Simulated assay, not measured.
Amino acid sequence: MLKLFKLLGNKRLFILLMGLILFIAVMGFTLGPRLNLSWPEKFLKDTVGFVQSIFYKPTSYVAGLIEDVSNLRSLQEENEALKIALSHYTRDKARLNWIEQEYIELQELSHFTEAQKNQYNYTYKIAQVVSVNNDPINRTIKMNLGSNDGVKVGYAVMSIDGLVGTVSRVSNFTSTVKLLTTMDAKDPNSNGISATALGKENQVFGIVETFDHNKGMFLMNKIEDSSSLAIDDTIVSSGVGGAFPRGVVIGKVKDIQVGEYGMTYTAFIEPTASFSDLKSLIVVYTPEVLE
């Protein structure tokens, strides 16, 4: 019996010693410089990754479900807003179609001529600035559209920001544009612009006919009633007289004062268009070019 205990004790010692040697060998193997993982490490990582994926998928599903539930209210509100916007669009589209049809019928009943029907059917062409004349008295620019492109003297020229000037001379391939900054009511060769306020077309009327170089603003004169005009109103061309197209932005109201003789009012208009560093222009073709 004593021999048996000694034998078992020796075996345990032997197994413990072999385990310690194996442990040290594995540590030395794994801690050494190497590029690839050992198969035990690969097995361990794959096992841990598999277990993590088992727990991650349901956890992420539950988290996503909770997030979807929390977003359900906002989605419902957004859906309601879209429905309202769609109903407004449908209503406005039907209303505009009805107005258009009524307008056509009124034209027919009033025996409108083709010229009257096409009065405001403007077309537009893009032009590039080729040169600038910085004469302070008669500042002009030259663009690369001319008579071969259908351009005529008097056509309005604008930038993407607003009205810039009118065509004063035309050659075959180029045209000269006289800028609005040269406007002067005292000059008999200077044409005024019939103007109104955007959204108040039936309430406001005046003539933009002078540019004040000191203030850098247009003067809109002959306003009979200023009660409907307000600071920051957008001033646009009214199209009355036919010299300038209807609805082109000129600027914004910055001040309103009593006119020279106290009978009318004058509004100071800050231009929306820049008159320096112009590169691209838009020529407004009047309907007669289409005939």
Rank of each mutant, 00 (worst) to 15 (best):
residue 10 N to S: 12
residue 70 S to N: 08
residue 167 V to W: 00
residue 196 T to Y: 01
residue 81 A to W: 11
residue 33 P to A: 04
residue 200 K to F: 08
residue 262 G to K: 03
residue 179 L to G: 13
residue 141 I to N: 04
residue 204 V to S: 03
residue 225 D to Y: 06
residue 133 N to A: 06
residue 42 K to F: 03
residue 79 N to Q: 10
residue 2 L to R: 11
residue 267 A to S: 12
residue 11 K to V: 14
residue 244 F to V: 02
residue 286 T to E: 12
residue 22 L to T: 15
residue 39 W to T: 05
residue 261 Y to T: 15
residue 192 G to F: 04
residue 158 M to Q: 14
residue 229 L to E: 05
residue 117 K to D: 05
residue 191 N to Q: 11
residue 222 K to S: 11
residue 37 L to C: 05
residue 194 S to Y: 14
residue 52 Q to D: 04
residue 260 E to A: 14
residue 207 I to E: 05
residue 201 E to R: 07
residue 148 N to I: 04
residue 253 V to S: 12
residue 163 L to T: 03
residue 142 K to C: 08
residue 261 Y to R: 15
residue 226 S to D: 15
residue 164 V to L: 15
residue 141 I to K: 02
residue 63 A to F: 02
residue 277 D to C: 06
residue 33 P to V: 11
residue 63 A to P: 00
residue 84 I to L: 13
residue 113 T to H: 01
residue 282 I to M: 05
residue 234 T to S: 05
residue 68 D to N: 11
residue 39 W to D: 10
residue 53 S to N: 13
residue 78 E to C: 00
residue 2 L to P: 10
residue 254 K to F: 03
residue 46 D to A: 10
residue 268 F to C: 02
residue 218 F to V: 09
residue 120 Y to R: 13
residue 139 R to P: 02
residue 176 T to L: 03
residue 205 F to P: 00
residue 265 Y to K: 12
residue 91 R to L: 07
residue 282 I to V: 14
residue 149 D to A: 14
residue 116 Q to K: 12
residue 117 K to N: 07
residue 264 T to P: 02
residue 108 E to P: 01
residue 179 L to K: 06
residue 205 F to A: 09
residue 66 I to A: 07
residue 175 S to A: 12
residue 183 M to E: 00
residue 264 T to V: 00
residue 5 F to D: 08
residue 75 L to Q: 10
residue 234 T to V: 11
residue 190 S to N: 12
residue 15 I to D: 07
residue 69 V to R: 03
residue 156 A to N: 00
residue 139 R to F: 02
residue 218 F to S: 06
residue 126 I to Y: 04
residue 41 E to R: 06
residue 146 G to D: 09
residue 235 I to H: 09
residue 42 K to H: 06
residue 256 I to E: 07
residue 128 Q to V: 04
residue 242 G to A: 01
residue 96 L to N: 09
residue 285 Y to N: 08
residue 239 G to T: 09
residue 210 T to S: 07
residue 75 L to E: 10
residue 268 F to V: 01
residue 82 L to M: 03
residue 121 N to D: 10
residue 189 N to W: 07
residue 140 T to I: 09
residue 11 K to Q: 12
residue 161 D to E: 14
residue 229 L to N: 05
residue 83 K to L: 09
residue 131 S to P: 00
residue 57 K to R: 10
residue 287 P to V: 13
residue 114 E to G: 01
residue 12 R to D: 08
residue 182 T to I: 06
residue 257 Q to P: 00
residue 140 T to N: 11
residue 175 S to G: 04
residue 53 S to I: 02
residue 176 T to F: 01
residue 48 V to L: 15
residue 70 S to T: 13
residue 53 S to Y: 10
residue 13 L to V: 13
residue 52 Q to K: 07
residue 252 K to T: 15
residue 86 L to W: 09
residue 80 E to L: 02
residue 221 N to F: 05
residue 112 F to M: 11
residue 245 P to W: 01
residue 242 G to S: 01
residue 240 V to A: 06
residue 35 L to H: 07
residue 80 E to H: 02
residue 153 V to Q: 07
